[in-house]
Amino acid sequence: MRIEPKRIWKMSGNPDRDQEPEFTGHEWDGIRECNNPLPRWWLWTLYATIAWGVGYMVAYPALPLIERATPGILGYSTRAELAEDLEVASAANAPLDDRLVATNLNEIASLTDLREYAIRGGAAVFRNYCSQCHGSGAGGAFGYPNLLDDDWIWGGDIEAIHFSVSHGIRDDGDADSRYSEMPAFTELIESDEIDNVTEFVLKLSNQDHDPKMAGLGATVFEEQCSICHGEEGRGDREQGSPNVADAIWIYGGDRETVRQTIANGRFTVMPSWRERLTESQIRQVSVYVHQLGGGE
């Protein structure tokens, strides 16, 4: 049973299907190549795609030139579209941003919707701006504090975190930036005094130490270090001096590193973010960091 093809399926230029198709003269192993015209629907589809392609090249960016591609008469640009989308997104978030900025920092955690928003937004801000130093999981690195633990240099409540992010630490460009300096003690005290105070710091933090040297170092510590780090070495958040009597170290707590820190001093900088991030973003990332586990 042969089904009569509809007109559109017909071969173009070959109205009589029963006619023998033209033979090209090529034959391999009994397979003959004939010169059958293409089906008309197929041909028209091809022409349509060609026409579409030309139209597309005129309408959209297409041909790469030296500086940039031809812009196309519609002026379409993926960047412009992205910018538009971002604008729409930030417009949609504007009410939440406004509320976040207007709300007392300490109350954000108890307002479920604001908290959720801040954590999600803060996670994105953190990955973009903070993770380079503090690590994508906020676990810190050599010289950059771990934000997950319970030891804070400048304070770990939401307001202290917010202030640190806003103004940075030891940032020249921000007059309100937190500031303190660990001096290099090689220029201030003798080398054996440095050795002795190193042993005393190891003793403070419950590590293996030389008791005799540590005894001598106690005096040095009291004279040179206790002003900032406190008599028991517990640090002072007002001036950002770290606790040297606990298990947590920014640069490392072994004998070698502690000695190096005392001898040469330390000076790390965290930039002030208030110029580069919006107040809402700063609050988001503060809430995010605060809830990671270390927040007080």
Partner: peptide
């Protein structure tokens, strides 16, 4: 389990996982 970092050392030497 949060494994970045694998665990967190707290100031009193205790260990925390999140």
């Amino acid at each position: 389990a949060v494994r970045n970092p694998i665990n967190v050392l707290l100031s009193d030497n205790s260990i925390r996982n999140s």
